[in-house]
């Protein structure tokens, strides 16, 4: 009975979700960007891994003048579907407003494109898929040792692909730490400690991507890679990606 209810819920929810997205698009077209953002945010509750919705939400925030939330949304869309040219373009466009660029300085464009052509989740999926293929081929090889010569090329390929995907995934993880955020407050003041009683060390513009290093009370210690700066911000000034 529960299964039947769940199936009905899915079928009933799908048109409602589509209508929410259409409402958001209509509001966007009419210039009601805050209304569009609300509609896209609502749709994302049901489809949190939909890159187009994150992208549309980023557009709505950008048009509403909220650069920080826009970059956070574009970044989420990019994390899910990094090959999409529109997502890349808009994320880079917004990042330039915050004094940053999607491609790090000095990185050849082609290399950066290839390095980020797959999302981290896709790389993880490939890693586990090649791992499974390698082990299953290993099972066959163990159970049918007489077919070793036939199976060896496949097994070797699976091992290489597994190792390659693992290295790629690992390096992406190392360069893009899990705990990331975007400054959503205009000209955020970063202090030397977690409280107003600590002095302001430097300021950072809205939309700058940061790494969240630690937490203390309602404060976050963040690091800005580009400038090599580190400081504390109230947690509401940072939107976690």
């Amino acid at each position: 009975m529960k299964i039947i209810t769940a199936i009905f819920a899915i079928f009933l929810a799908a048109p409602a979700l589509g209508q929410t997205i259409v409402d958001g698009q209509k509001k966007y077209d009419s210039g009601d960007y805050n209304g569009a953002a609300a509609a896209f945010s609502k749709a994302l509750v049901d489809e949190p891994r939909n890159p187009a919705l994150h992208y549309d939400l980023g557009n709505a925030w950008f048009k509403a003048g909220k650069l920080g939330p826009a970059i956070a949304s574009y970044q989420r869309a990019f994390d899910i579907r990094p090959r999409d040219p529109d997502i890349r373009y808009n994320l880079n466009f917004a990042l330039k407003r915050a004094g940053e660029e999607l491609r790090p300085d000095g990185t050849p464009p082609a290399l950066f494109y290839l390095f980020t052509i797959l999302s981290e989740r896709e790389l993880a999926g490939l890693h586990w898929l090649f791992c499974a293929a390698m082990l299953l081929l290993g099972c066959v090889l163990v159970l049918r040792p007489q077919r070793r010569e036939d199976l060896f090329p496949f097994l070797a390929s699976a091992v290489l692909l597994w190792a390659g995907a693992g290295l790629w995934w690992g390096s992406r993880n190392a360069l893009e730490p899990e705990d990331r955020g975007v400054i959503v407050k205009s000209t955020a003041e970063l202090r030397s400690g977690p409280g107003e009683n600590f002095g302001v060390s430097f300021t950072a513009p809205e939309g700058r991507r940061v790494q969240i290093l630690s937490r203390s009370g309602g404060w976050l210690e963040i690091g800005i890679t580009k400038e090599g700066a580190k400081g504390w911000l109230p947690s509401e000034a940072v939107e976690k990606i």
Binding site: I21, Q25, Y28, E47, R49, N50, P51, A52, Y55, D56, N59, F62, K63, I80, R81, D84, D86, I87, Y89, N90, F93, A94, S119, E122
Partner: peptide, 14 residues
């Protein structure tokens, strides 16, 4: 300016 809205979901392979 930024590019326009998108529709659709992630690709099946993805």
């Amino acid at each position: 300016d930024i590019r326009y809205l998108q529709a659709g979901r992630a690709r099946p392979i993805s």
